[in-house]
Structures are given as structure tokens and as C-alpha cells.
Amino acid sequence: MSKPKVLISRRWPAAVETKLQQLFDTTLNSDDRPLSADEFRAALQNYDAVCPSVCDALPAEVLNVANKRCRILGNFGVGYNHIDIAAAREQGLVVTNTPGVLTESTADIAMTLLLMTARRGAEGDRLVRSGQWRGWCPTHMMSSDVTGATLGLIGFGRIAQAMARKAHHGFGMKILYVKPSPADPEIVADLQAVRCETVEELLPQCDFVSLHCPGGADTRHLIDERRLNLMKPSAHLINTARGDVVDSKALIRALREKRIAGAGLDVYEGEPHLDPGFLELENAALLPHLGSATIATRTAMGEKVLANLQAFFAGQAVPDRVV
């Protein structure tokens, strides 16, 4: 019996690509070039499985292509708001993701950004590289303390809890969180975490606010002009969740006008085409979507996709099915 035909939209860790080629009739993206909408339409017509990444937009007008052969979208990533889930469901497409394996690496990046924006790390690096640093002096580049500060988490899933552990046990930070229902009592007790009923209740109390909620229509511009104005002038915003959770224009204005002290961002609206206003800001620490970018994590993500495909084509229950 012939092997299922599988298309991988971007390069994956070599070890996973090798396994895919052993198990399936696999087409790799050798030059790692983003595929166009027309190329995805053709892939849906010619492959049994298409494996997009979180940077690949799959709206209804792509998924609704005629003469579809594809039966499963094996998404390389936890987030799947780049896929029109309603259209996928209507088309009978199975959609899977890769939860659980990128928790610690993404929480590490969130803490990295917190430290970078608090201590002006990116700004200091630019200063040294520019050759303009004139040496130490008592009032140069003073910044914000992290130890003992208050961290507010919007969303309290696995990644937020991992960040909270690092912040509380490593830096003695006080933890506040917003979640529709109270978290596990053991976790709350370990972190001495306090639940806020609303985002509006949380924001004014925090020195740092970190976003850990899914993207999509329900959370688009969750952090907008009004909510940014509730933050302390000394506070910092961290986003490793999804770019569209933050109103970019409003955040740029708040940073430019010093209504908040700083921001650390790993994700952006419309990435990789971020708003150029961010590039003009000294008080913004910017990373290129590195949350899960460790060798071990990205390999584990690929293994998750592989397991989902194997289960699907064997007629078994798919472990990480979202549709």
C-alpha cells in the first residue's frame, strides 16, 4: 500500500524530517520559503496531510478549495488562530497542535523579556555596540528592580504557571493572575498566587504584566488604550502569547509617551511585518518569536505532529486533535 503524501510547509529539525521521510511520502520545503495562498490550495488538492506552522495563514478562502485530497492539518505549534477553525470543521478537516512540550522554553523567554525590559538590557547592548558608551557613572541607565516586584499574569495555563514558578521561587516576585475560575489550590498555595476577578482589577497593582492567553477574535486587542492607561507608569508589559492580543498602535503610543515604562515582545500583529513604530522605541525589547526556539523543544514539537499523523492514518484516536 502506498504511503500517505505529506507536505511540510517550513523546515523542521533534521531528526524529525528524517522520520517523516521514512514513514510517509514526504515533501519538504528545502529553501524554507513561506508558501503562498495558491501553493497551499494546491497542497490541499494533492496531499493527504498538510503541516503548516504558526506563521502560515489558512483562512476559509484557502481551505474551501475544490477537489480537496487533504484530510488532516498537522499544525507545528500550540496556537492555531492562523487556521480558520470553523471552515476546517465544515470541510471535515482534522486539525492538530503541539501542546505541553514548549511550556518551559516559552516561560524562559517570557522571563528573559521581563529582565531585558526591567534592566534595559536591549538598550544597553545597543549602546555598547554603537561605540557610544562612555563608562560607568552613578546615574547611568538606572532601571527597575525585579526581585520582590509584583507580576500579573493574564491567563494562567501551563506557560503562565511555569513563568510564575520561575518568578516567585527565583526572584521572590508576588504573583497575581486573571483566570475565569480559580486555579488548582496546590499551585496557588505553592506560588502564594492571588486571583483577580478582572483584567481591570489586576493591571493597576502590577509592576510587570505578562500575557498568556490564546489569540483569535475573543482576545483581539485585549490590551488596548483603555487598559494600558490602567497600568502604572513604572510598569512593563510582556507578550509571548499572540501578537493580536495587543493593540500595537496603542502600545507604541503608551511607550512613546512614557505612560508605561517598557515592553518586552516576542510576538507581533502581522508578523514578521511588525509596526515600524516599535523600531523607534528605546523602551521596547524585541525578539523574533523565539518562545519555543530550543533544539529540544522544536524537535519535541515535530515529534508531536508525527505522532498525530501516525495515529490519524492508522485509524486511531488522534492525541492532540483540536477539530
Rank of each mutant, 00 (worst) to 15 (best):
I109F: 04
R129P: 05
L93H: 00
N97E: 06
T106N: 03
V94S: 11
L102M: 08
F24L: 09
N97F: 11
P99R: 13
N81V: 12
G100V: 13
F40C: 04
A118M: 07
D38T: 14
S105Y: 05
K68G: 00
L28D: 02
P34Q: 11
L73F: 12
E90D: 14
T103A: 07
G77P: 01
Y47E: 04
D25T: 04
A60C: 06
L102N: 11
I83G: 00
A122L: 03
F40S: 03
F24A: 04
V65E: 03
L73R: 02
L63N: 01
L73A: 01
E90Y: 00
K19H: 08
L127G: 00
R69L: 12
D108N: 15
Y47Q: 08
F24M: 10
E39K: 15
A60F: 09
L115G: 01
I83C: 06
A57P: 07
R71I: 00
A110N: 06
S105L: 06
E61K: 09
E104A: 14
F76R: 08
A88C: 07
N75L: 11
E104W: 11
N81L: 07
M116E: 00
R71N: 04
V101C: 13
N75Q: 14
L35H: 11
N29G: 08
T27Q: 15
L93M: 03
P34D: 03
Q132I: 02
N81T: 14
G79I: 11
L23W: 05
M111C: 10
N67P: 01
D108E: 15
T27A: 09
Q132L: 09
V62M: 10
L127M: 12
N97T: 11
D25L: 04
T96C: 10
N97V: 08
C51H: 06
N29T: 12
V54Y: 04
L44H: 09
A118I: 08
P52L: 15
D48L: 08
V95H: 02
R126I: 01
P59Y: 06
G121M: 05
R69G: 05
N67C: 02
G92E: 01
P99D: 03
V54E: 10
N64L: 10
K19I: 13
Q132F: 00
W133I: 07
Q22W: 02
Q45H: 06
E104I: 14
N46R: 14
T106G: 09
T103K: 08
S130W: 05
P52G: 15
R89I: 15
L35T: 04
T117E: 11
L113T: 02
R126H: 05
V128E: 00
V101Q: 05
N97H: 14
L93S: 01
A86M: 04
C70H: 05
D32R: 13
E39Y: 13
V95S: 02
P52E: 14
I85Y: 06
S30T: 15
A37Q: 13
D31E: 12
T96A: 03
Y80F: 15
L63F: 14
W133C: 01
G74T: 11
A107W: 06
K68E: 10
K19Q: 12
F24G: 00
